[in-house]
């Protein structure tokens, strides 16, 4: 009687009598574990290939014969300090761009989210509706005019050119506004009665109560900009000192088509930090996505 509420696919027999629990679990694992392996095949393949000695990356062999040096750390060292494609620089640039963009995004979205949630000013709802509409158009259409602006401002090959155009994150504004709207008005009024200034109310009441959502937005922006390939490709010329990981890897690929071991070592520098970050902070990732996607 008790456990049918959660039983959905493949968990009860067609005529309604519950399957034994052990069978259900075995069936689920039989489907999920091979699928999990397939989903993570790129990750596994990348790591294995990155550790292989030159020439072995193209062979479907994994267990070295006696005395055979099949695995090495050399690829990582070479790629990291490569003269033409220095991955330590690419990684640093990616870190600067992703962090910079996330910090600015969180700052301006929290401020604007507070205003849209708690302040009354003429044009507020119209403005908000207009911004939400922009969120629904495909972002790639901003490429040409944004490029022109960055060109005009002289921001080609700069961090600023990579960071600033993507900081007006409307999804982030929506996320923060929804959260701040849920904070009780009485708290803000109490602060006002106690003589707190507007700035003081914002920093002492609104910000501390919004920290989890701000972390979520920070992480989503960070991961998004870490992987923002198209924009970083077009605002950098190939000789730019500020190339990021995906753009660097793309140039590296153009040069060393067949050196898969080194290419995968380069890929590790992009994938593994994000995997670690996600594992440490997954609560915030999933929280933000569910909060943002469930309308109402």
């Amino acid at each position: 009687m008790a456990n049918f509420a959660n039983s959905t696919l493949a968990t009860t027999r067609a005529y309604g009598r519950p399957m034994p629990k052990a069978w259900r679990y075995a069936l689920s694992y039989a489907v999920l574990l091979p699928l999990l392996l397939l989903v993570h095949l790129p990750l596994l393949w990348m790591i294995i290939t990155a550790f292989k000695a030159p020439g072995y990356g193209t062979k479907l062999e994994f267990i070295p014969r006696a005395g055979e040096a099949m695995y090495t750390l050399e690829n990582f060292r070479q790629v990291f300090f490569d003269k033409d494609f220095p991955f330590y620089r690419f990684a640093w640039n990616s870190l600067v761009v992703a962090t910079g963009c996330a910090v600015v995004t969180v700052a301006i979205c929290t401020m604007a989210g507070y205003a849209f949630a708690k302040k009354r000013f003429p044009g507020r709802d119209l403005l908000f509706a207009g911004l939400i509409t922009i969120m629904l158009v495909p972002g790639i259409i901003f490429m040409v005019p944004q490029y022109r602006l960055v060109l005009k401002f002289g921001w080609i090959n700069t961090y600023l050119g990579m960071i600033l155009p993507h900081t007006a994150n409307i999804f982030g504004l929506f996320l923060l506004r929804q959260h701040i709207r849920g904070l009780p008005d009485s708290l803000l009024e109490a602060a006002r009665v106690d003589g707190a200034s507007e700035i003081g109310t914002f920093f002492r009441i609104v910000v501390p109560l919004s920290v989890p959502v701000m972390i979520t937005l920070f992480l989503l922006t960070f991961v998004g900009q870490w992987s923002n390939f198209l924009w970083q490709l077009i605002v950098n010329t190939p000789d730019s000192p500020h190339l990021t990981l995906p753009v660097g890897l793309s140039l590296f690929q153009g040069q060393y088509q067949t050196e898969w071991e080194k290419m995968m070592a380069g890929a590790c520098f992009s994938i593994l930090p994000i995997a670690v970050l996600f594992t440490v902070a997954q609560r915030f990732f999933i929280q933000g996505l569910t909060a943002g996607s469930v309308k109402e």
Partner: peptide, 26 residues
């Protein structure tokens, strides 16, 4: 209301330059 405008200005400035103007410019 004035403080409302003050708080949205940074966001709105970036949005106006990099999102709203580009649509017209496109």
């Amino acid at each position: 209301a004035i403080w409302g405008y003050v708080f949205i200005v940074p966001f709105l400035l970036v949005a106006a330059v990099f999102l709203i103007f580009p649509i017209a410019y496109s």
